[in-house]
Simulated scan of single mutants.
Amino acid sequence: MTKTEAAPDFVLAPGAKVGIVAGGGSLPVEVAQGLAKHGYPPFVLLMEGEADRQQDLRRYEHGTLALEQIGSLIPTLKRHGVTHLVLAGEIKRRPRLTRIRPSLGLLAIVPTVIMALARGDDGLLKVVTRGLEKRGIKVIGAHEVVPELAAGEGTLTATGPKQSDWRDIEAARQAAKAIGALDIGQAAIAIGGRAIALEGIEGTQGLLERTRELRGHGRLAGKARGVLVKCAKPGQELRADLPSIGPQTVESAHAAGLAGIAVEAGRSLILEGPATIARANALGLFIVGLPAVEPMHG
């Protein structure tokens, strides 16, 4: 599939207990399943209004937390004996600062949280991660505890890129890295050797829909193929919010007339891996894992 079963990479000591802060999408479910399979049944903290795969997640030991109750995150994790934490899944909205219930632990970090909110997603994730680690809970990436989720290197599908697709891959990759450096997004699309659309706040799904609509635009009319590239932001906190693709990404890329998708090997997640690869094969799209171009951080 995306990678051979990589159990030797497994990083947890015996007796470790992993908590999952579960947002939306399939990632929290896949992390929970992977941990259980490796013999570490998790404690799942469902983020209220965000976690949408409740039925799958409630089979594990679990609790719920509103974004505004973030001050009780650490006491809740400590109460359940959590030693390691995975932040998994999408959290679409920001906490309303006026509704956050103050606690002594939280008041100490509120100024840094407010500064981080002003800096964008990645700044906030770094602050949350540091705050947890200071209090004795180690933050780990989904790809570290369930390594089979990480994209492998090379062509992962039956079809590979043509020579012209590699020009698109390079153009989109450079564009994705440029917007990543500004903490704007992680993805870009190139058609005919040049970047034509960049991911903004609307996410990858919105980017692909926009590209589908652009196909009728004069400059793109008649141009075939094109590639979506998703990359980690330069210097990104790799333990949270890694770029990911899934079956829906493949469907939308096909609807946008693209020939394929490229992600960074080892630094991107392929969700619902077998279904994603099978769907790409059925639609004739390629999925490629690119070698990472900067050293791993964190």
Rank of each mutant, 00 (worst) to 15 (best):
I270V: 13
A22E: 09
G154Q: 11
P41H: 03
E144C: 10
Q54M: 15
V127N: 03
E5N: 12
E153W: 01
A181R: 14
A265Q: 10
A176D: 12
A262R: 03
I20Y: 07
A13P: 05
A275F: 07
M47W: 08
Y40Q: 02
Q248K: 11
W166G: 08
G222R: 00
S244P: 00
V86G: 02
E202R: 08
L85W: 03
R219V: 06
D56L: 07
E170M: 15
E170Q: 14
L207M: 09
D241M: 12
D183P: 09
G63Y: 01
K17A: 07
D122A: 03
A116F: 00
P274A: 15
P274I: 14
V263N: 08
H62M: 06
K233G: 13
Y40K: 06
R215P: 10
G226K: 08
G15E: 04
D122H: 11
V146N: 12
I114Q: 11
P28Q: 01
L149T: 06
T98Q: 04
F10N: 05
E5W: 08
L156K: 12
R79D: 12
L27D: 01
R101M: 13
A150I: 10
T98Y: 01
T112M: 13
E90R: 14
P234G: 05
C231Y: 09
A256N: 04
A171V: 12
A197D: 05
L65I: 15
L107M: 12
E202Q: 08
I114A: 12
A175G: 06
A253E: 06
I179V: 14
S103F: 11
L67G: 10
E144D: 14
R225A: 14
P247Y: 00
L285G: 00
L258P: 04
V18E: 01
V29M: 00
G152R: 06
P102F: 14
A172L: 11
P247N: 00
I169P: 02
